[in-house]
């Protein structure tokens, strides 16, 4: 067990997993594209525009999940001062921001043919935009504030405020009357998406998760080398 917590073993493991993901990522992306553009049926109301769902929904899920995880890690790091946790949240933030950006733009591209508008200041869309600002502030906080303690404090504050926004994003479609539809996929409740569309969605989610893992591992190695480089200068 101790072996798995050893930073050198973790670094070694990230290299191994990276090589493994690099082999499979391209075929998985191709399978995901084939399923979402060729195999998945048209929606009976929205037609082909519904295919945007296969990039929009997994992106939104990953951006929300990343921020929730970042918040948890930065709070734990603030309380227990575990240095390696800051490496993890620093590696996660750019991934979350990228997928948040993708979710907003693809949502806008989906909105035009279905709602007749690129953008509406409705609760779901606005709270997703606010999440993007939280991501930007969070990244700026650890990039430009050199004082580690001060940066950690700001990161924790931003992540707690952002966490409140995550709850608002999740329930915005229930609390307010929004243009954005209510959740179609529920873990505990009824899922209203047909099986033939659920499979491509699952494949695209898996594809994006693999890509996220690839970037995360590369970022983790970057942050680890940065720390060790600082140590070299002290020699």
């Amino acid at each position: 067990m101790i072996k798995f917590l050893n930073p050198s073993y973790i670094f070694y493991l990230t290299g191994k997993i990276l090589n493994f993901i690099k082999i499979f990522i391209i075929p998985i992306i191709i399978i995901g594209i084939i399923f979402s553009l060729f195999v998945a049926p048209k929606d009976y109301i929205q037609g082909d525009a519904a295919r945007i769902m296969y990039v929009h929904v997994p992106s939104a899920w990953i951006s929300l999940f990343c921020f929730a995880l970042i918040s948890f890690l930065s709070i734990v790091n603030f309380i227990f001062k575990i240095k390696s946790l800051s490496l993890i949240y620093k590696s996660l933030a750019p991934i979350g921001l990228a997928f948040n950006f993708i979710a907003i733009i693809t949502g806008s591209l989906w909105g035009q043919p279905t709602w007749g508008t690129w953008w509406a200041w409705d609760a779901r869309l606005t709270s997703m935009l606010i999440l993007m600002f939280f991501y930007i502030i969070f990244i700026f906080s650890y990039k430009f504030i050199k004082n580690t303690e001060k940066s950690s404090k700001i990161c924790t504050t931003v992540s707690i405020l952002g966490l409140i926004n995550i709850v608002v994003i999740k329930y915005s479609v229930n609390w307010w009357s929004t243009l954005h539809q209510t959740s179609s996929i529920n873990i505990s409740g009824k899922t209203t998406v047909h099986f033939s569309m659920l499979i491509p969605l699952g494949i695209m989610l898996f594809t994006f998760l693999m890509y996220s893992a690839l970037i995360f591992l590369m970022k983790y190695r970057i942050e680890t080398i940065r720390v060790k480089k600082k140590g070299l200068k002290k020699l």
Partner: peptide, 19 residues
């Protein structure tokens, strides 16, 4: 895609370009 192609292709292109 019955007129929706521009939106669908743009979405996929943007997603993979950002990635």
């Amino acid at each position: 895609m019955d007129g929706h192609g521009i939106y669908v292709w743009s979405s996929f292109l943007l997603t993979f370009s950002v990635c």
